[in-house]
Amino acid sequence: MVLEIRALTLEFEGLRALEGVSLTVAPGALHALVGPNGAGKTSLLNCVGGFYAPTGGRVSFGGAPIHGLRPHRVAAHGIARTFQFVELFRHMTVLDNILLGRHRHMRAGVAAGALFWGRSRREEALHRRRVEEIIEFLELERHRKEPIATLPFGVQKLVGIGRALALEPALLLLDEPSTGMNREEKENLARFLLRIKHELGVTMLWVEHDMELVGDLADAVSVLDFGQKIAEGPAAAVLRDPRVAEAYLGRAFVRERGAE
C-alpha cells in the first residue's frame, strides 16, 4: 500500500512547520526523511501518525484518507510508529511493552478479561507467541523480563521498534531509531531494518540523522529544510546535491569549499 502526502501544511500560531510538502512512499520501500534540526521531519511523522492535525493538505494510505484522524484510528489502518525518545512504558518489562503492541489485535472485552474465560484466555496464548517471535527477531531474548527503565538506551530503541512491529503494521514510521546507539548497535539496527523490509515486507518512512546509514540503506531519500522539501531521489544522488549540502552546512561554507 502506498503512502501519499499531498501539499501538507502545518502551522502553529503563525509558525509554519511544514509548507506544502508532497511525498510518496512506494510500497515496500525504505524511504528516508532527512534534514537539519527543526526542518519539520518529526512534525511530518506526527501528521501522518495523527498526533498533529495538519492545517492543510492530504495524507492517504492505500487510498484511504488518514489526515486528521486520532492516533488510535491511524493505528487501525496498519500504521505503527516509534519515537525519538522511545516513549515506552518504563515500569513494564520488555515482554509486556511489546505485548501492548498487540492491543489492536485483541478482541476480548473488559468483561471477558475480568473472567479470563473463553476468548480472553485463547487470545493470550496467541499474542504471547507472536511477542516471542518479535523478541527473537530483534534478538532481545536476554532482556525479555527486564523492566525498561533498567535497559541501555540503544536497547530501549529496539524495544520501541518491537512494540511497533507487534501491531503487524503495513507502514512503519521510524523517528531517528539510531540516535543514542553506538556503532555496533547501529550495525545491528541496519540489519534489522533490512530484515524488516525484506522478510516482513513492511514499508518504512524513516527519519534519520546518520547519513552513512541513510546512504547505505535507503531506497529513496527526501530532504526537508525549513518545512519545505528541497530534494528527493535515490540516496547517492540526493546526498551529493549542492542544495542539500547548503541546507546542512550553510551557503558560505559550500561556496568556500567549491572554490577549493
Binding site: 501518525g49 519515537f83 512504558f89 518504563r90 501492548l100 471477558a112 478479561g113 473472567l115 512494540r163 501491531l167
Partner: peptide, 23 residues
C-alpha cells in the same frame, strides 16, 4: 484477571502518547 488482560489501562497511566500510538 483485569490487570493481566487489560494492560491498556496501565499504558494510559504510564504514557498516553505511546498508548495512542499502539492503537
Amino acid at each position: 484477571n483485569l490487570q493481566r488482560s487489560r494492560a491498556g489501562w496501565m499504558a494510559i497511566r504510564d504514557r498516553e502518547i505511546a498508548a495512542e500510538s499502539v492503537g
